[in-house]
Structures are given as C-alpha cells and as structure tokens.
Design a protein around this nucleic acid. Structure first.
Lengths: 161, 161
DNA sequence: CTTTTATAGTTGCACTCAAAACTATATAGA
DNA sequence: TCTATATAGTTTTGAGTGCAACTATAAAAG
C-alpha cells in the first residue's frame, strides 16, 4: 500500500520536496553507485582502497606529485592523503624522494610494481566505464561532460561569495 | 614546473588514465561538492546531519514510512537509518507508532515540529539548487535528468548479472 | 503445536574519517 | 640575526560508518 493513497489526509501548507526532481539527491545517488561499482574492481581484485586508488590515479596521470598537490587535486584531506601514501609505499607501489630544495616536501612516483598494477587496472577501469556509458549516445556523452563542467564552474563561483 | 615537461623521460607502455575524461572521477567530484554545499544549509543552520536530512526528506515525501523502506529508498545501511531515526525522535522531529499487524515494524511520521523545520528548510534547499542549475539552459537541465536516469537503469542492469 | 527459517530493527566492534594538534622546516619581518 | 609566521606532512582524537551479531517477532515447515 502506498501512503499517498490516503487522499483524505488534510495536508498542512508545506513545501513539497520531490526527491526524484532534486538534483543533489539524484546526483549523489548516481555517483555513489558508480563509485561503488568501480571500487569492486580495484578493491576486491587488487586490494586498493578508494583513497589509494585516487592517489595512484593522479600520480599515474602526472608522473610526479607531492602529497600537497594530490590533496588539492582530489580535494581529500591531507591526513587522508598521508595515510593512503603510507599504505601505498608499504606495499611498494609508490616511492618517495625528499626534495632537495625543501626538506618538508616529498616527491611521489610510481614504482615498477605500481606501474605494473596500473597497467592491469586502468584498462579494466576503462572497460567498466565503457559498459556504463554504453547506454548513452555520443551526443549525450558529450553533453554530460559539458554539463558537469558547467555545474562545477558555477559551484566555484558560488563558493567564492 | 610541470612534471609533464620532462619529455625525455622514457615512458613504459602504460595505459593512460585521463581523469578529466573519466566519468566516475568527474561524477564523484561533482556530487561531493553539491552534497557539501547543500549540507551547509541543513547542517550549519539546522543542526541536521546528512543521514538525518535524507530520512526527513523521504518521510516528508511519502508521509509515512518504516525504517526498512527508508533504508531501501536511500540505500543507507539499516544501522545508519536506525541511528538517524533515533536522533530525530529524540529531537522531537519525527514520531514512531508501532504497527498493529507486526510488532517489529514502526511507522515513522513527521511531528508538527518536524513539519515546521522542513517548511523552512525545503525552500532554502530549492533555492540553493536553483542557484547551482541557473547556469544550465532548460534543455541542458532536462537532458541532465534524462542522462542520469539512463545511467541508473544501466547500472541496475549491470548489477543484475 | 513445535521447530525452523525469515525479517525489522538495535547494538557492539573494528575501522575510517575529518578536524585539530603537533613536528619539522622554510620564509618574512623587526 | 633573532623572532614570528607560514607551510608540508604526521599523529591524535572524537565522531560516524558498515558489518556482523543479536533481540524480538512473524511466517513456514514438519
């Protein structure tokens, strides 16, 4: 039985919130499911946590990064980055080399082992993404990225005030 | 200096991962920022946590719900729902009435106080959403919801295998 | 009936997280 | 130069989380 069937119920004048037409709700639902689905690949199969995956992905993308930079790119707390970096180094997937200019800074790079792992992981991640977006037309796919970019710029604008 | 400037670096044949063209990355970034931005409204201003907001929103949407149903709609763990429901009841925002048919089940409803709070909160949430999507054309807005729906259906399909 | 199996909701526990405090180093100002 | 302030990264801590165990009730099977 559906609660809405009680048409008789006297409704106080209350603003309606239709969650299916509420962007934050739809967006967080979708992103959740996407992250969840993708993480089964790198978590179950490669023993990598979400923060670790993000760190790996960015180092792979940029070749050399500091923890600070990763924290900015991923917008993860620096404490979270610190722990992920530690875990990845312990597993031999990345290396740290202290900067000569600034003793506080460490440059992070993939090790051979890290490269090998990503060489397996990245194609699977791409394949998974491809399955998900297979339902979209080329135009929709393009539109989606454009819309996301627009929304992000707008959020930045709003933040600045 | 950009690490990519070292054109000399001998690259092993490794699959590239361009995060800006990787949907899970863009999506989780955006959803994160949207949730974050919205939560400042109900968290800072009304002392409501994210799980509590979700529970309130769904009860408001459906009038009467059980914890089980909320857990399904929000895809939150039932423990998380249980704790949010407890907190909301302690604050007098929702009421529980045990089902006559099944002693295990409790029907959850907004109290007058809960209605009042949502009457303030919902318009503000809508206003915030409106500011964010103000950057989109009507067509883009429509497309966005269609694309999200398509992707969710596809994820359900993938899950089922 | 009586026993088994399923279900709604709660609680305990180990783990994760974000914020703050802290350490070590670097830069700016007096 | 000495002191104050800022910054990179780590550690600590309190709160929140998911999982699994548990309680109470209900439904199904024997």
């Amino acid at each position: 039985m559906n609660a809405e069937d009680h048409a008789a119920k006297p409704r106080p004048a209350r603003p309606e919130l239709d969650l299916n037409q509420f962007l934050p709700y739809r967006l967080s639902n979708l992103a959740d499911r996407v992250s969840q689905g993708l993480s089964t690949i790198y978590s179950a199969r490669f023993g990598i946590s979400i923060p670790e995956w993000r760190v790996l992905a960015w180092i792979s993308h940029k070749d050399v990064l500091t923890a600070k930079q990763i924290s900015e790119f991923t917008r993860m707390d620096k404490a979270r980055v610190s722990r992920a970096v530690n875990a990845l180094e312990r597993r031999g997937l990345i290396s740290r080399t202290p900067s000569d200019d600034d003793q506080r800074v460490q440059f992070l790079r993939l090790t051979g082992q890290g490269e090998t792992l990503l060489a397996e992981l990245i194609p699977e991640a791409h394949a998974w993404e491809a399955r998900v977006v297979a339902t979209l037309s080329a135009a929709e796919y393009r539109d989606l990225f454009n819309i996301i970019a627009k929304l992000e710029r707008q959020l930045t604008r709003i933040d600045q005030r």
